[in-house]
Structure formats: structure tokens, C-alpha cells
């Protein structure tokens, strides 16, 4: 606005005096791709996502569900916020893990928190169940995608349903939803999901011990192989307490026990 051609840029790639810094997703010329080209950026991140959370992994066991995610929220390839909990306790029946654009996660969490306040205001001892929340999420996300203005998120919703059975589901940015004994988002879909499926006994559910050991192993694999993962993670646990009540907690942060002794053996890079 104030750049009349006389004022020189203050520093390389920085804003001119009176102008703003060139944030990701913000283009002066209105074209994201050109914005990238003029920045000589060789990153191929999506132009739509700005602050992003990486994978979420959820595993169902005989008495409940576990959902895990690391505590990193990235800004492009910068590990910008390193201590953010991406697992949320919704109520005593539901936990949720969120991946994708973290601003969109925070936005949907504000709506969910408001829903839970309304739910509590009835004071009828009936709390929302995970399937109801997952279905509501599909409607919100589907309507946003139909207006071509999606929330760039991929969430895992788990908890205990009205029959005291564990429930675990995934809802993505288009409103695609499904329920399974293991669901994941992001890189965990490629790295962690096969590890969990491999260990699944055909005739029974996982036990809590098996599920938490799998979570530990998978978070370790994700930390080693996904560049946008940190070594710190939190785990949401939702389990049946007794016939009338359930318990949800977000535990951690836990630390991946890193073993780098093999690093000196690696040659050829």
C-alpha cells in the first residue's frame, strides 16, 4: 500500500516498511501457487493448511479405547508448537484426537465444548455418546465440503457407546466416516495401521495391555520415520468403569525411548 517504488525492502524476503510479513496461505497477488514461486519455496505442503498436527492413532480394546497423538503442531516444516495436546476429553464417554489444520481443530473444539455445556445444562444424567458426536461431525464436515470451504481436519473419535461397548471411528475433511477396531490419520495410516492389524487376534479383542504396548511401539515408529512427529505424545484412555459409568482421561505426556546407537552404523548418506 505504501510501497511507492522508492522504499527498498527492509530485508530479503521480509516485509517492506508498512507492509506485512508474508505468512503461509497469505498471498498479495491472490494466487497461492505464484506466492510459492516468488518465494522460491521448494516445499510441497498444501496451500490450505498452515499450522498442522500430524498423525492420530486409535486402538479399541475389550474394555474401551486408546487414542494417541504426539504433542507437536508444525508451521510448514518448522516445529512451531512443541507442547500442544491434540487429544481431547469431550465428556466421560468420549475422547477425540485431531490431526490436520490445528486452527480448524480449535474451531471445531469450541463448537463441541459449547455442545457439551448445553448437554450438561439438561442435568438429566444423560451424556452424549461417541457415535452421536461422530455423526454430528460428519454432518458439519460434509456441509463444509459441499460449500467448497472444508475444515482441513481428520479426527479420531472414541469412547463407550450406550450398550457399554467400545466405539472407535474416523471422520475426515469430506465427512467420510467409518468405524473399526483400529483407525488412524496421516502417516500413521501407512506406518502404524499395518503394525496393529498384524497383531490382531482373529478370535478376540485386544486387551488394555496389548493395546497400550502397540500404541507405545507405533508412536516410536512414527517418531523415527515421520519428520513431522515429535518424541513426546499423549494418550487418551476411555474405559468402562462400572455398569453405569465410564472414565475418560488424557494421560501423559509420554516420551518415546529413543535409541540412536544404530546411527553410527548408518553409512552412505
Amino acid at each position: 500500500m505504501f510501497n511507492n517504488g522508492i522504499v527498498q525492502p527492509l530485508w530479503y524476503n521480509g516485509p517492506s516498511p508498512g507492509q506485512f510479513y508474508n505468512f503461509p496461505g497469505y498471498a498479495n497477488n491472490g494466487n497461492m501457487k505464484q506466492c510459492h514461486e516468488t518465494n522460491n519455496s521448494d516445499s510441497t505442503r498444501s496451500t490450505a493448511m498452515i499450522t498442522t498436527g500430524s498423525s492420530v492413532l486409535g486402538i479399541k480394546f475389550d474394555q474401551g479405547v486408546l487414542i494417541a497423538a504426539d504433542t507437536l503442531v508444525s508451521y510448514g516444516s518448522l516445529s512451531r508448537f512443541q507442547n500442544i495436546d491434540r487429544i481431547f476429553k469431550i465428556n466421560d464417554n468420549i475422547i477425540m484426537g485431531g490431526g490436520g489444520d490445528f486452527a480448524d481443530i480449535q474451531s471445531i473444539m469450541r463448537s463441541i465444548d459449547q455442545k457439551m455445556i448445553e448437554d450438561q445444562c439438561y442435568a438429566d444424567n444423560i451424556a452424549m455418546r461417541p457415535k452421536a458426536l461422530a455423526t454430528w461431525m460428519t454432518r458439519v464436515l460434509y456441509n463444509r465440503r459441499s460449500r467448497m470451504n472444508p475444515l482441513f481436519i481428520d479426527v479420531v473419535i472414541g469412547g463407550i457407546d450406550e450398550n457399554n461397548e467400545p466405539y472407535l471411528a474416523n471422520v475426515d475433511l469430506r465427512g467420510r466416516a467409518f468405524s473399526d477396531y483400529v483407525v488412524s490419520t496421516g502417516f500413521a495410516r501407512h506406518l502404524a495401521l499395518p503394525l496393529v492389524r498384524e497383531k490382531k487376534p482373529a478370535d478376540r479383542d485386544f486387551t488394555l495391555e496389548e493395546a497400550s504396548e502397540l500404541i507405545r511401539q507405533c508412536m516410536e515408529v512414527l517418531y523415527y520415520r515421520d519428520t513431522k512427529n515429535s518424541s513426546q505424545y499423549t494418550v487418551g484412555v476411555c474405559k468402562v468403569k462400572d455398569s453405569t459409568s465410564n472414565q475418560c482421561d488424557v494421560e501423559g505426556p509420554f516420551q518415546v525411548d529413543e535409541k540412536w546407537s544404530f546411527a553410527k552404523m548408518v553409512k552412505g548418506y
Binding site: 497461492m32 482441513f152 469430506r174
Partner: peptide
């Protein structure tokens, strides 16, 4: 904020 409408998004899969 340009890109708020996210024109590169495909609603189908």
C-alpha cells in the same frame, strides 16, 4: 486472507 475458499480442494474421493 486469500485461499480462504481453498479452490484446489476436491470434494470427491
Amino acid at each position: 486472507v486469500h485461499g480462504a475458499q481453498r479452490p484446489d480442494f476436491s470434494p470427491y474421493e
